[in-house]
Design a binder for these strands. Sequence first.
DNA 1: TTCCTTCTCGTACACTGTTCGAGATAACTC
DNA 2: GAGTTATCTCGAACAGTGTACGAGAAGGAA
Lengths: 233, 233
Amino acid sequence: MAEEKAASVWLRPERPRRAQPALTRTQIVDAALELLDAEGLDGLSMRRLGARLNSGATSVYWHVANKDELLELALDRVMAEVAVPSGGGWRDAATGYARSLRAMIHRHPWTVTLFGGRPMIGPNATRVLDEVLAAFGAAGFTGFDLEYAWSAVVDYVIGAAGSEASWQRNQPGTSSADWIRELGPYLSRLDEERPGLASHIRDIWMKETGDVLEGRFAFGLACVLDGLEARRP
Amino acid sequence: MAEEKAASVWLRPERPRRAQPALTRTQIVDAALELLDAEGLDGLSMRRLGARLNSGATSVYWHVANKDELLELALDRVMAEVAVPSGGGWRDAATGYARSLRAMIHRHPWTVTLFGGRPMIGPNATRVLDEVLAAFGAAGFTGFDLEYAWSAVVDYVIGAAGSEASWQRNQPGTSSADWIRELGPYLSRLDEERPGLASHIRDIWMKETGDVLEGRFAFGLACVLDGLEARRP
DNA sequence: TTCCTTCTCGTACACTGTTCGAGATAACTC
DNA sequence: GAGTTATCTCGAACAGTGTACGAGAAGGAA
């Protein structure tokens, strides 16, 4: 990856082009997304991207400065899938936003590592942020409280959805129950050393189905939102 | 990275050794930690690790199967710095745990990417988890609620501290204010398109000092804990 | 025609994780 | 003592990575 900090992608428009261009930024991002969604962050290499585009590996560098920059574009692209419902109360808006963000992360688990890398200022990310601030603003939050309030929600969602997603990213096709099953010897050792923990693991992790994940997220989100409600001016 | 899934590190003890070994697991992890803390995840390569240990690059592979495994060992090592205070109420325990985890993440920003990769079952991670479960259990939580309750706290802390840390990881030595300043043209464009957002950015991000981060974390954590308190049996 | 911009791409460099097998060294066996 | 085995180090090699560079093709304008 490049060490130089080029000016942000969002300041440098797509290069001017002539009649029939062979490669486009959107086309490149499309192909990158296919690779990312199919095989995760490791699945995207510039050479494979070139192959998928039926072009030379290094042709992409005319349209995009970096691999980092390409990822920034891809991340903003999937932010288009995130929506903040309007019309209902602020709590509906917050819940809808949280669930929509989580769903997006589940569809694109590779995003997790990228969040927070630098402030996201792509068009879709700013649109989402603008909508979120409007919704929380309408709820009465202003100034620092506004920042704190929406941060609490995003931070929780990214933490929760991130931990859910990084499992499926690293152990595709296996459940945590499968994994625990391989750990027989470890669990029986744990029975002696930390019996409370061992029984909790057997109770919970072995039953970790989609429902449990769902329940966990609903619980945590409700906690955060209750806390916000209590602090709302 | 290896595709094969070797049995977990924690099931395979350090290899038996003779009188004066030249390389030790702990020694290796020590050196790895130095590299990780100094230069982040990218700073750790097997060759550089070998160099720091005054040994051949591939000698490490006798003591550790993978780079992934090495990272697992390093991650568990820093989990030793996390503590759950006991003696006070459950809320003291939860707060202390949250702050201790956040502080650890700040000291070792490279951990963020590693969390959730797979369940952490190293000795230090299990010790922490055991203590946390005990604290939340003493607060009255049982079964699924116990799992939900502690998850809400970890997920929030990892989300919040993670976003704080990934900034310092990617832009070492610069503040977000510096970064915004470079974005002059972008901000003035935003003034026209999304005036509310632009003014919020100027108000908040430009002033993002340690105090703001501190306030944000305290706010979010209080929200989560209030929510838990309300749901406590 | 000449010139300039736009765009593609082969080659090359310095790096990565990891495998393999050769060799050294110590401890145990006879 | 000699012989054998287990422990450990390490150089070479392989397939892969991101990216700089420069040669060249293709089209529009003068």
